[in-house]
Simulated scan of single mutants.
Amino acid sequence: MSAVAALDYVSVLIFALTGALVASRAQLDIVGFAFVACLTAVGGGTVRDVLLDRNPVFWVGEPTYILIAALAAVVVFFTAHLMESRYRWLLWLDSFALAVAVPAGVSLAMETGQNAAVVLIMGMVTGCMGGLLRDVVVGEVPLVLKQGELYATAALAGAGTALVVSAMAGAVAAALVGCGVVTWALRAGSMAFGWKLPVYRARPPKS
């Protein structure tokens, strides 16, 4: 199994769990759970593969990804009520999914010989797009767009770390590990310690 496939499997599972948790907060039926879970699980990877002209798209070539996402949705449908804070579970699971999906996007872009800018963008797209689609579909403010949150920034920093490590050491495995660690550390720090970027504040008009 390639590194991209392994990372995709893990990110699909974790992102599917977050999608199902969002569906539980929206009180959807089991079909709604499966739809949101699958959309979240494969959304980022689908956009990545389409942009990189990868044929077939990863879950079309291997439908097991969809099965994993659907099974995760069923499990959450019957167990979500046991969780004390579904939103807290959602946030932390999402952080782990981000830290796996960004290296997946980076790895595929590197394998196909893309330039540094494309590697950065593919890391961000793979990590952020599924969660963005999930939140938009259920009518929530996307985590990636919340004021000052280190989300897309964490993905960008992680992808950048992979490029630096790869250029300095030439070790792809170390680059991907560094990518995941930096991505998760920044995202977790944002949630645990309130790390944020400054946001735009409109100044009142002069009288």
Rank of each mutant, 00 (worst) to 15 (best):
V31N: 11
F33V: 06
A37L: 09
A37R: 06
C38D: 00
L39W: 02
L39A: 13
L39G: 09
G43S: 04
G43Y: 03
T46C: 02
V47S: 01
V47R: 00
R48P: 08
R48A: 06
R48N: 08
L52C: 13
V57I: 15
V57K: 09
F58Q: 01
W59Q: 02
P63L: 11
P63Q: 11
L67Y: 13
I68A: 15
A69Q: 06
A70F: 15
V74Y: 08
A80I: 00
H81R: 14
L82T: 13
M83E: 11
M83H: 00
E84T: 14
E84H: 13
W89D: 02
L90H: 08
L91M: 13
D94A: 09
S95C: 08
F96V: 15
P103Q: 11
V106R: 04
V106S: 09
L108T: 10
E111H: 06
T112H: 08
G113M: 13
Q114T: 01
Q114C: 11
A116T: 12
V119W: 05
L120F: 11
L120V: 09
M122A: 03
M124V: 15
M124Y: 00
V125Q: 03
V125L: 12
G127W: 04
G131Q: 02
G131F: 03
D135E: 07
V136S: 01
